[in-house]
Amino acid sequence: MSIISVNNLTKKFKTLTAVDGVSFSVNEGEVFGFLGPNGAGKTTTINILCTLHLPTGGEASIAGYDCVKRPDEVRSSIGLIFQDTTLDTGLTAYENLKFHAYLYNLDRKLTEKRIDEMLSVVELTNRKHDLIKNFSGGMKRRLEIARGLLHYPRVLFLDEPTLGLDPQTRNTIWDFITTLRKQEKITVFMTTHYMEEAENCDRIAIMDHGKIIALDTPENLKRLVHGDTIHLVTEDNEKACAEIAKTFDILCHAENGGLFIETEKGEEFIPRLIHSLSIQVKSVNLRKPTLNDVFLKLTGRTIRDDVLSDDKEVTREFVRSHRRAQR
């Protein structure tokens, strides 16, 4: 049964089309990931789903409620963890959770029980009455997850849940999400531009320039990239590329001052490759397929390159400032 269904969803900001005719559905109990570079339209899609933005066209519904026509029912069915923290730092952990319980009209007796329960899930019981000001980044995130789950949502949205956190905290957050999924019957919808995180999802939609360019399980997506990738740096990459094409009938892809060669059984191919080349090899690296390779294959770019690209940042700033202006 699908709990989120999106059909031909479009969102335009003046001249920029942030979401361009996106369709997908998410099954109940699934961990569904949105993967893509910054400015791909992931957050905009989430904002439409959680009723913060109105779509320019298309439909979206959560738990059977239309996101435009029945926003209150949709809001009651979802929990949200945003990119930036939305806790009140001048209040304590308990006060933040209690505020949330009142907004979602939770039963009074249930509230206290539920707050204690959620605080113990995210291991913040002993910080219950401490001001958020004194919390670390990871603690804030955990508390936000606790708050997002407080009202028993059917879908939990996580927009870049581990952005700006150190790897150790990222792992802890992921352990929480995995445990939670076993404890609470909940669907998780997340966006990320970390490849390693996307691997944890049941299904992934890869988004670029407002469109979904692939949607499948991580395993199936990785099958799009045939075999392993060899990264080769030589004295003369161009010449090496020509030689490889001649000897093995394989096309290579030049990027970042090296050559990417796709092949089956890379570990066996490398000795043959080096033996056949007349050019001095500087370094060779074998990689098993990752989602980044899938993205590279589909778009010709790597996700990390996009993070550094200036025009993407401009797009992102444009969307952000526009959002601010509209609020």
Binding site: D72, S76, L80, T86, Y104, R327
Partner: peptide
Amino acid sequence: DREFGFMKEMLVAPI
């Protein structure tokens, strides 16, 4: 509230 994100917590609540 808007600058520090807390407004979002209120805006996405069923109120």
